[in-house]
Design a protein around this nucleic acid. Structure first.
Lengths: 211, 211
DNA sequence: GTCAAATTTAAACAAATGATTAAAAATATT
DNA sequence: AATATTTTTAATCATTTGTTTAAATTTGAC
């Protein structure tokens, strides 16, 4: 099929580990499965990465850093509107998830298993602080007398609408007898609609806030 | 503290198993942990339930059937409006999740691990079919020239906004340094807002549908 | 009270699993 | 070519884990 160039042992392990960690999670992946999939001797995993856990940390960082870098650029740009940022974020996010749909389930489960990986490996909080995106929200909230701390609902709603379908994919596939083809169509519909829905959500704050 | 009445061995096992399955998932829970937490001899687990897997199926059914029964009653009632049904569903769902916040992560992971449990144990599809809720959506979709098959987006959006925060709780707690207290406040805010946001989403179909 | 059935216990089994070791093989250095 | 270094291999360790077994204990029927 392909692979005319032989990967280094290290890369063969990482490639196999990433696929298996994403598919079955950390506990569900056995070091022997990784060795088998990578076509290497079991002991080489520990030789190159010391432990299964250390290998996981490397996979997490390598899997998410590209996406996070992209998102950071989008939310920091002072030239684009809040609305446009949402559109770009949804697009970037869905592009990544369309090729690696297991990412949300994987990362949510691993963070739950060991919350430290969030602080140590990725610095989401730091990336968010002082971004144009946050500033623009504060401006909108202030103009419309909405509590600015509702920002967390904004963020969670955006993540929910975008990422949740991927977490729920196995359940959806079963209930609605969806094939991968159908799921792709479904996601591409959401690519267009999520920014519209999100707009509607934002606007609904204006008319319904009281107290 | 409590428990003046001694539970039966069977119930002690189920109680311990439920707590551990919800907290650590099926693979993360060891039969010896269950036995220890239940204060029973390890062999009794197999004596009463045959296997860890059979025990899981029982826990899943017992954990979800009450909620599903409630939701089924709500969506079947022809007297309530679509809007009112959403409000009641969100309320019922959040009430259950507030006392058992691990349910979404648990059920999504177990369905992913073994999709059969959905068909065998719970019959979501069957419960949904022919309900007043579906009929009311079709009516609305028809009146506003929206493709009726967008119902799946409706359902997923509702699930996303309601359930996703619980799946993402460990991540949220870390990023926003939230305590359980803060999370409860956060959820109670959503109890009011989700129906409003959902309304806004529904209405946004009217103005943005084309093609 | 006796006996059969149900329940509980301690011990063990067999397989799986993350990691290590020591020797062999391949590669690089001089 | 000789030697040192790096990489790879097969074998083994020490735990962990789901389940089973056989004996002991308790409970219920008569």
């Amino acid at each position: 099929m392909s692979s005319p160039i032989e990967l280094s042992t290290e890369d063969k392990i990482k490639q196999a580990a990433k696929e298996l960690f994403l598919k079955h999670g950390f506990v569900g992946t056995k070091t022997r499965d990784i060795a088998l999939a990578a076509g290497i001797n079991l002991a080489l995993l520990n030789y190159y990465f010391r432990s299964k856990e250390k290998l996981l940390h490397i996979i997490i960082i390598e899997t998410l850093s590209a996406l996070f870098d992209t998102l950071e650029i989008i939310i920091k740009d002072p030239e684009t509107s809040f609305r446009k940022k949402v559109e770009l974020m949804v697009d970037a996010y869905l592009n990544t998830l369309e090729s690696q749909p297991e990412i949300p389930t994987f990362i949510l489960n691993e963070v739950r298993r060991d919350p430290k990986i969030l602080v140590e490996s990725l610095k989401i909080k730091h990336r968010l602080e002082g971004s144009s995106f946050v500033f623009q929200w504060f401006e909108f909230a202030n103009d419309n007398k909405i509590p600015p701390q509702y920002f967390i609902h904004i963020l969670v709603n955006l993540m929910s609408l975008t990422a949740f379908p991927f977490v729920a994919k196995p359940m959806m596939s079963e209930i609605f007898t969806m094939q991968n083809e159908d799921f792709k169509i479904f996601i591409d519909q959401r690519r267009k609609w999520i920014p519209i829905w999100f707009d509607a959500i934002i606007q609904s704050f204006k008319h319904n806030y009281s107290e």
